[in-house]
Amino acid sequence: DSCIQFTRHASDVLLNLNRLRSRDILTDVTILVNRQQFRAHKTVLMACSGLFYTIFTDSLKCNLNAISLDPKVDPEGFAILLEFMYTSRLTLKESLIIAIMNTAIYLQMDHVVDTCHRFIKSSDPS
């Protein structure tokens, strides 16, 4: 018996999910952050964020097709984290890193928070 592992399968699947998002195919929720709106797939949001996992496993909320986030959330920070969810790449602009980290805390994305923390400490030891 043999087993063939396609080592780039996970990244190929993620790329296709991101293509589906950009073409708005089977997206099933709109995330409202202040006045900006983001279309996404609930399953991808749940897979990446503890907050969205909690929301969409709650039988009272799982059928919602629009979710408003706390107004303290920065839309740019959210956009960067949503992009990370669908690409595995986290863009860290100097001016946004605190907003990104705070948004990751809010979205309960602990591993991203830890990585941001280490990045900040390494780039600014003072």
Binding site: M46, A47, C48, S49, G50, Y53, T57, M85, S88, R89, T91, Q108, M109, D110, H111, V112, T115, F119
Partner: peptide, 21 residues
């Protein structure tokens, strides 16, 4: 992503969904 210095993070990136709640 040319021009941006890319740091490879080998650790876990996201939470693990439990087999059952």
């Amino acid at each position: 992503y040319e021009g941006v210095n890319t740091i490879k993070e080998m650790g876990r990136s996201i939470h693990e969904i439990p087999r059952q709640d």
